[in-house]
Nucleic acid binder design. Structure first.
Length: 409
RNA sequence: GUGGCCGUAGCUCAGCUUGGUUAGAGCGCCGGGUUGUGAUCCCGGAUGUCGGGGGUUCAAAUCCCCUCGGUCACCCCA
């Protein structure tokens, strides 16, 4: 028997019922907020990610599924959505505002643990071509509503601003000085990052103590970034979205500027408890070689983790299970099942048309159907027997009145 | 990449310390009790390369070594 690859999952019922609810809620909300669907490649040129995400990030350094294709090109299974979405925006020749929603698998080669798989799923929103803080607030609000809508308890939102690149030139020096002074107390990884990517040290759990007194970007915002951030916060206040400021939240990818945020749930007990995150990434387009600037902000939510944090979903799968009690009526039953399905009812039957009535009833019970409808001798009088599985009560109903009878229940 | 714990029936697990009849239980599945009635109840049935390989032994699910997988955690992220 060949088994699954490490870190991949088969998502089957009953768990998949929660996935269906999440994906439908996402699709529904995206339309309400004016986001169009984007269906994106799962594979891109390696360079896209190394340039956009950043050479010195963990994702690029050690987590990418990268290989050479048969034409000798270096390709990578996408580790995230944003870079590809911006590439698509530029490739399409789009200008101005484009709001896109996407969903699908991402790939990162890591040791799996609770809430972290090698193939995982995200729903993603990108507000492209808009520099105003209202866009930041909108994607954050959207994410909050989505979590609310699917029943996640204890939703928390951490928020910060890391300012613009120009703000960080001076700040970076201050931070490096501080880190060098405490070099002996830092982990090996963090020491290495003092020169390559000092901001990321702020995020290090291992060095939380040292980092606690380090200078933070929030105290070194330029006037424009500071205004932008205060408008984001005031919009969130207006919308009634609660948040907490976290001056050490920087996020692991290089393309962010200004607003960064992360959602979590206090009900999701795992070391990897972040349900989603995102931020503004005005520099990204130019990182991947665009001549035009594309100010933008986006969010990616981890489906696997959200589903873990969701309440169980009770699903009645079917309205009617049709039992064929008289095999001579099989083709009548087949036509009728098709007819009911055509009317929008959720209907199933035993397609083998060969099993005993008893086993058809067992299957009906397992299917979660509300009602069993029996096609047998009464069919010749234009009737079927309708048995309500919950109560056991049974009555004969004219075939053409079944749809109405179901509505009356 | 590193560390802890765990791999026995479809699922959850007992048995392993102290090696010894045909390796068990519950749930699920299938059939019967009901010639057209599930869920409940009663009766019966099927299913195991005891994760894989090697070693010790008269004898290994049980002891030893290696290996693969799962899980949780570290690093970091969704």
């Amino acid at each position: 028997m060949i088994s699954r690859l490490k870190g991949t999952d088969d998502i089957l019922p009953p768990e998949s019922h929660r996935w269906r609810r999440l994906l439908r809620a996402f699709d529904d909300l995206a339309q309400r907020y004016g986001y169009d669907l984007a269906v994106m490649p799962a594979i891109e040129s390696t360079e896209l990610f190394s340039r956009a995400v950043g050479e010195t990030t963990d994702v690029v350094e050690k987590q990418m599924y990268t290989f050479e294709d048969r034409g000798g090109r270096s390709v990578t299974l996408r580790p995230e959505f944003t870079a590809g979405m911006v590439r698509a925006y530029i490739d399409s020749g789009a200008q101005g505002i484009v709001k896109l929603a996407a969903a699908g698998p991402q790939f990162r080669y890591e040791q799996p643990q609770k809430g972290r798989r090698r193939q995982f799923y995200q729903v993603d929103l990108e507000y492209l071509g808009e520099a105003a803080p209202g866009a930041d607030a909108e994607v954050i609000e959207f994410s909050y509503r989505l979590l609310e809508m699917v029943g996640v308890d204890g939703i928390g939102l951490r928020l910060n601003s890391i300012g613009d690149a120009s703000d960080r030139i001076a700040y970076r020096g201050l931070l490096q000085d501080y880190l060098r002074r405490h070099q002996s107390d830092l982990s090996e990884d963090s020491r290495r990052r003092i020169d390559s990517n000092p901001l990321r040290v702020l995020d290090s759990k291992a060095d939380a103590e040292v980092v606690g007194d380090a200078p933070v970007p929030f105290d070194h915002l330029g006037a424009e970034a500071a205004d932008h951030f205060s408008e984001v916060r005031s919009a969130l206040d207006t919308l009634g979205i609660p948040f907490e400021l976290d001056p050490r939240l920087v996020r692991g990818l290089d393309y962010y500027n200004r607003t960064v945020f992360e959602f979590y749930s206090s009900s999701f007990e795992a070391a990897q408890s972040s349900l989603g995150g995102g931020g503004r990434y005005d520099p990204l387009a130019e990182l991947i070689g665009s001549r035009q600037a594309v100010p933008a902000v986006g969010v990616a939510m981890g489906c696997d983790r959200i589903v873990e944090a969701m309440a169980a979903v009770e699903v009645r799968r079917l309205n009617i299970y049709v039992v064929v009690a008289d095999r001579d009526r099989t083709s009548d039953a087949l036509r009728w099942v098709a007819d009911l399905r055509g009317r929008g009812l959720k209907v199933d039957w035993d397609a083998s048309t060969a099993r005993s009535v008893k086993s058809q009833f067992k299957a009906a019970n397992r299917s979660g159907a509300d009602v069993v409808s029996i096609v047998g001798a009464e069919w010749s009088a234009g009737m079927v027997s309708m048995k309500v599985l919950g109560t056991g009560e049974e009555s004969k109903v004219p075939v053409e009145e079944v749809e109405e009878w179901m509505k009356q229940r």
